[in-house]
Design a protein around this nucleic acid. Structure first.
Lengths: 184, 184
DNA sequence: CTCAGCATGTAATGCGTTACATGATTGA
DNA sequence: TCAATCATGTAACGCATTACATGCTGAG
């Protein structure tokens, strides 16, 4: 599964431009999938070439044309086939946790700064998840609600864990730093 | 930050072979960083060339030589510089949640199967985290303990959320499927 | 006899990230 | 006037995944 699949998925709800698909990624999918213009536009071009979406140029006043994409029947079938064939994976790559693992090699103030920055990032993410949830006027799919609930729960748990345990970690490495210096 | 940094990090504890580094990734880092031989061996070769690690061939009985890597002073400094310069990121890419978002396009039994498979994967991960924790004879860094605690908490929360909410999701899409068919 | 574990690597391919490139409008 | 928003794309680079390639040992 790649960005193409997500583009097809986004188009099941309604027709969208590439730009709007990017927004969609940032709003609704941000806590579990990221994609930038550099992936989305080439994906859309490829999907058009393969007939899975079709593209209509809509002239606009005072703006260049926009390209509105819509899902074809073939595209819908391809999406379902792709979903049926996708094994459920969930990958995390956390440079933050790597930094924490080697916290004892860093100045304690730096560790505190890193932990606070991470908590702030998660707070921002939680705010955007809440906002997303409040925009649901019965129009979200049940799965979308499930994913939003997941985000609130799991990102919330991560945020709290770090917030609750960072002081302890910093205190421990501070002790170690002190005893290392005494040993010199 | 890339696989190279993690290799340097692993070598702060003790000298290791490429094979052992891979084990290390699977045991201690599995819930937040993945790397295979195809990344580790080239990384080690590059680090050796740049003088950040040094490599000793150890002849073995009844086995080919193994290459034991150790961190040089330069390597240690480079690791710390790299850590200091790394902004704390935490990226999730969940094909599982994508599948859930589009659950209404799939047969309910398939959705159940996917959710159960994910829960089973997380159970396996939790088991390996627990095993890792039980192997700590006071030899882990405080940061490693922090990361393990994080894993237990957050993976546990994910597992529970999915286990507690999957029935509800499946029930909802079953209703929808039924009313869609009635409409036909 | 077969499978799992130890042990090291290469090569191709695919994918995403990042930076680059453009340009009009609107609100502060 | 400056930044943000709308809007679309290309190109280079880096990185990881995957498959391939090899070969011995010990346990069951």
């Amino acid at each position: 599964m790649d960005v193409k699949t997500l583009c097809l998925g986004a188009l099941t709800e309604r027709d969208l431009t590439g730009y709007e698909i990017k927004q969609h990624f940032e709003e609704a999918y941000s806590h579990f999938f990221v994609a930038g213009y550099g992936s989305i536009y080439p994906a859309l071009a490829d999907l058009t070439r393969r007939g899975l979406v079709c593209c209509t140029s809509v002239p606009q006043e005072k703006r260049p044309d926009k390209k509105v994409y819509s899902l074809t029947k073939t595209g819908r079938d391809a999406l379902i086939a792709e979903l049926m064939a996708t094994p459920p994976r969930h990958k995390v790559r956390s440079e933050f946790l790597v930094l924490m693992v080697f916290a004892h090699l860093l100045p304690p103030e730096k560790v505190a700064e890193i932990a606070e920055a991470m908590v702030a990032q998660w707070d921002a993410l939680l705010t955007s998840i809440d906002q997303c949830m409040s925009e649901d006027q019965g129009c979200f799919s049940p799965g979308m609600r499930f994913a939003i609930g997941y985000g609130k729960t799991v990102v919330g748990a991560a945020r709290s864990y770090v917030d609750d345990n960072k002081e302890q970690l910093i205190a421990t490495i501070q002790e170690e730093t002190a005893s290392d210096e005494a040993a010199d």
